[in-house]
Computed example of a mutant assay.
Amino acid sequence: MGRNRNRAGTLVVLAAVMGLGACTPQYRNHGFVPEEAALSQIQVGVDTRDTVASSIGTPTTAGVLNDSAYYYVRSRVRTFGASRPKVVSREIVAISFDKNGVVSNIETFGLKDGEVVTLNRRVTNVTGTDNTFLRQLITNLGNFNAASVLGSE
């Protein structure tokens, strides 16, 4: 009997250790930011979009208007147990270009420089244009006049 109690105690301790081991934080890395040594090779006023892309790689994303900038983004996300994933670090390198495509500025940002911006996809429906077949059918039921159909009018 004492031997079974010893095994049960060992199993409980083993399960507790394994349960605590499952709660270790998990880290995921996303994106790419060039190293400082590679960024120091880029010369403001000399390098162009093509030379930047060939020397440090293609960007994560580019500026919306006329390719006004290259953005290199790297994030580190921590997941701990069943809690919501949390961004623990984010680095952004923005390389701006003038209208001729020559580097005009190089900036580096992190989480300490501002708030995390949550991107939401929002679609705005214009009023009155969402007329499906079923909606048109139901709307026209109120306009139905039986007398005009039977010719009694």
Score class of each variant (00 low, 15 high):
32 F>T: 07
151 G>R: 07
75 S>G: 10
61 T>I: 14
117 V>D: 02
59 P>W: 06
136 Q>V: 15
46 V>R: 07
143 N>L: 13
44 V>P: 05
19 G>K: 02
112 K>A: 15
137 L>P: 00
7 R>Y: 02
121 R>P: 00
76 R>H: 10
14 L>I: 11
12 V>G: 09
76 R>F: 11
134 L>V: 06
90 R>Q: 14
29 N>R: 15
36 E>N: 15
86 K>M: 14
70 Y>D: 12
132 T>Q: 05
45 G>S: 07
72 Y>V: 13
95 I>H: 03
26 Q>L: 12
37 A>T: 02
74 R>Y: 06
83 S>T: 14
19 G>H: 02
30 H>R: 15
50 D>A: 15
39 L>H: 03
66 N>F: 05
63 G>P: 12
106 I>T: 03
29 N>M: 15
40 S>N: 10
6 N>H: 08
84 R>H: 08
132 T>A: 10
81 G>N: 04
110 G>C: 13
138 I>N: 06
145 N>I: 07
102 V>Q: 04
77 V>C: 09
99 K>G: 11
87 V>I: 09
114 G>Q: 03
33 V>R: 04
131 N>A: 13
96 S>P: 07
22 A>Y: 03
75 S>E: 11
89 S>C: 04
54 S>G: 10
123 V>S: 04
31 G>R: 07
6 N>W: 05
97 F>S: 10
132 T>H: 02
95 I>W: 05
9 G>C: 15
50 D>V: 15
127 T>Y: 01
131 N>T: 10
28 R>I: 14
18 M>G: 13
138 I>R: 11
64 V>L: 09
64 V>M: 08
79 T>Y: 01
20 L>Y: 04
33 V>I: 08
76 R>E: 14
92 I>Q: 03
88 V>Y: 01
46 V>K: 09
24 T>L: 09
111 L>A: 11
43 Q>G: 09
28 R>H: 14
88 V>G: 03
133 F>D: 08
20 L>K: 00
41 Q>I: 12
35 E>G: 13
4 N>P: 01
84 R>A: 15
151 G>S: 09
36 E>Y: 08
104 S>K: 03
88 V>D: 00
142 G>Q: 02
59 P>V: 02
135 R>I: 13
74 R>T: 11
23 C>G: 07
144 F>P: 14
76 R>N: 12
115 E>Y: 01
1 M>T: 08
4 N>H: 08
20 L>G: 12
62 A>Q: 15
25 P>T: 06
116 V>I: 05
134 L>D: 01
42 I>P: 07
35 E>L: 13
101 G>E: 12
34 P>Y: 04
34 P>R: 06
135 R>H: 12
21 G>Q: 01
68 S>K: 03
94 A>Q: 13
123 V>P: 00
84 R>N: 10
90 R>C: 11
130 D>E: 12
105 N>W: 02
60 T>H: 08
43 Q>A: 15
111 L>I: 05
101 G>S: 12
47 D>H: 11
63 G>T: 12
88 V>P: 00
85 P>Y: 03
98 D>T: 08
133 F>I: 08
152 S>N: 06
65 L>T: 00
54 S>F: 09
32 F>W: 01
49 R>T: 10
11 L>R: 05
121 R>G: 09
150 L>W: 03
140 N>P: 05
17 V>I: 06
147 A>M: 02
22 A>D: 01
93 V>P: 13
44 V>W: 01
52 V>Q: 06
31 G>P: 10
97 F>P: 11
